Simulated scan of single mutants.
Amino acid sequence: MNQPLAYVHPGAKIAKNVVIEPFTTIHNNVVIGEGTWIGSNVTIMEGARIGKNCNIFPGAVISAVPQDKKFNDEDTLTEIGDNTTIRECVTINRGTTDRMKTKIGKNCWIMAYCHIAHDCVVGDNCIFSNNSTLAGHINVGDYVVLAGMAAIQQFCSIGSHAFVTGGSLVRKDVPPFVKAGREPLSYVGVNSIGLRRRGFSTDKIREIQDIYRILYQKNYNNTQAVAIIEAEMEATSERDDILEFIKNSQRGIMKGYLSTN
């Protein structure tokens, strides 16, 4: 690797076939895996662990210190999985003592101007459209899609296979397999299009719809709905994922569109 117009700290560990374009800066304590491309004017700061075959576009800043006044220069990380693309001017901050890392999964696509704050954990195969913003300590499952300008409040969770519409303000947890939209954010149906694209059968999608009808369309409170789902719906991995998400929700799950409060 010979990049006379890029700065690579001698302490950085860069695989032999990584491409680093001019005017990029790579700090100490950075690891970058094979086949990764780093565009011009990228800044990769201490604690970055970037996987194989990633693409990082100009203007991105990876592993900057958290925007958290409690941060005291702890030795924390930013982990980015294999085959993930990070587009122009994305900012990803490293962790704090809460989780010691910020983690982005494999095969993700993080579009221009997104921000992912400290201690977020993002699953595999996620798509974050332009200007999506994650505050600190957020959990995002696999195959989550955030449309443009979605803003997620700190400590929220978004379940796997969920779709959040553009411009949404997410203040409550979004369960798996659903579409979330409107203001305030509400359940607007099962993400059936996304599930079909990922190989879910029609019967499986109907099962998920039946579960959410009990939760969101029968005027039960969450405790009642969970009890009915457990008693009446066959135990499957999807049913159990939904129930576990609801039971573990710290902020409470978003409301249904028929709710008046």
Rank of each mutant, 00 (worst) to 15 (best):
R87S: 02
I158Q: 01
Q153N: 15
E79K: 15
I116F: 00
Y143V: 12
Q153E: 13
T96R: 05
T102H: 02
V65Q: 12
T76R: 05
Y143L: 13
N139D: 15
I80A: 01
N72S: 14
D73F: 14
K101D: 09
V90A: 02
Q154G: 11
V121T: 12
E74N: 06
A151I: 15
I152Y: 00
G148T: 07
G159N: 03
H137K: 06
W109L: 15
V61N: 05
D68E: 13
C120I: 10
M111S: 08
Q154E: 12
L146R: 04
I116E: 04
G95N: 02
H115P: 04
A135M: 10
N139M: 13
F128R: 01
D73V: 14
T85S: 14
G136Y: 04
T84H: 00
I92F: 03
I116R: 00
L146I: 06
R94C: 08
Q67H: 10
V122T: 02
N125D: 10
D142V: 08
H115W: 07
G148V: 10
G59C: 01
V145N: 12
T97R: 14
K70N: 13
D73G: 15
R99N: 14
D68H: 10
I80K: 01
C89E: 11
D75T: 11
H137I: 07
H161Q: 09
V121D: 12
P66A: 09
D73P: 10
I62E: 01
S160Q: 06
K103G: 08
V65H: 10
F128K: 04
V144R: 00
T97I: 14
R87Y: 03
A64D: 09
T76Y: 09
E88A: 04
T133D: 14
E79Y: 13
E88P: 06
N130D: 09
P58A: 09
K103N: 11
D82N: 06
K106S: 09
T96H: 02
H161Y: 14
D82P: 02
Q154T: 11
A112L: 08
P66L: 09
M111H: 03
D82W: 00
F155E: 10
W109F: 15
I116W: 02
V61S: 08
